[in-house]
Design a protein around this nucleic acid. Sequence first.
RNA 1: GGAGGAAUGGCAGAGUGGUCGAAUGCGGCGGUCUUGAAAACCGUUGUACCGCGAGGUACCGGGGGUUCGAAUCCCUCUUCCUCCGCCA
Length: 420
Amino acid sequence: MLDINYIIENKEIVIKKLLVKNFESKEIIEELELLNKKRKIIIKELEYKRSEINNISKKIGELFKEKKIQDAAKLKEESVNIKNSFGDMESNLFNIENKINDKILRIPNIPEESVKNQTENEIIKEKNKKINITEESLPHWELIKKFKLVDFELGNKITGSGFPVYTNKGAKLQRSLINFFLEENIKAGYEEIIPPLLVNKESAFGTGQIPDKDEVMYHIERDNFYLIPTSEVPVTNILRDKTLEKENLPIKYTSYTPCFRREAGSYGKDVRGLNRIHQFDKVEIVQITNPETSYKTLQEMVNHIEGILMKLELPYRILRLCGKDLSFASSLTYDFEVYSAVQKKWLEVSSVSNFETFQSNRLNLKMKSKSKKTLCHTLNGSSLALPRIVAAMLENNQQKNKIGLPKELQKYTGFEFIEK
RNA sequence: GGAGGAAUGGCAGAGUGGUCGAAUGCGGCGGUCUUGAAAACCGUUGUACCGCGAGGUACCGGGGGUUCGAAUCCCUCUUCCUCCGCCA
């Protein structure tokens, strides 16, 4: 959520920058400006009247002490009159503030300076795309059947489409990847968190999932909880309504959780196999930083994730997202994709973003230095999302009757190959 | 799930209708003293909003109500504690 005063004071710049995200904001900002003026006028009058009532009440108190009951009764009447003159002011103010809120929540975050108004994502780096596959090479959805790693039919039976059952070495591979990612993150100074998988609406609001994107989340009506679409939600909300000491920053959290996404309406060949499912495993990294250093932090996170992908010996590329592809809350995002040789497709496995103050403003997450309080910057990234890593790894490393695993991962799996 | 109790500033803890935005202690910040530090002493110390400013308004778990006036009374929700029940 952007700050209303900032929007109004920097109207022209904000409008221009939001166009980079393909968001036309002129009208909405002008409406905001008008509403804000109305708001201030009402507040001024209302607070003046309230202060009058407060004064009268004080006098009444004194008169009561002096037993001047009649004088007090007179003042009471006066006070009631003032209160009656409020009219609809209070409800008007309430309505205006609601309208302001609604509008401001519809405005996306401002993209970072270097994001240009282009529709092409910039490829920052591309590594090791050459893979030895043959005519007989299978896509991962065939491989997982052949080697009995993941059972989608079983998931259909137990739950429904998009809830795979990992079996045997497929299950062990999941657990090994999770451990590998967590250990890499912990080595890099991240504190491990196991958060709740269900969150309340305040938490979903804090990181920006509601009101705009509530259709991606499963919602438990009876208790009004949401299943988390990413551990970013509970983990970032650890610090909701906190003021942190400047010298305690940055705060670095890592967390493995299953993630639940409704992915309404997406069926077809793009979602075959592990490409897109309703429940998947992901390890996340989150950082809360001093606003002055957040872009340095973003780079550090990108380097860290790149290091993990290198250890997995997967072909990958890093994209710097264009304005059009930036998410609602993000100022700058780098996407990581791994190459899936049989599908001949790049698969997104991580998205690393700096949200600047967009989340912290909703979260009321501040930093204190000397006597000054300022909003922190929040950042997060996947390190990493498992299904597509598994898909690419299986496809790229397949041999005749087995699938090889990267050395670094073997320490965790305890086996070098997946065999029949 | 049932019965009872509680929620106050960074923390601890007073306050049960009127100079209470809130005593006191601890902590924090500034100072005196000291070669330096500690101790002691003095001062200071919440947030948001409106206003050029003086100043004002709101906030004592959340929401609503009673009243001229609410931390204090009433309703409701949430969370915590004690007891009972159930339970991995």
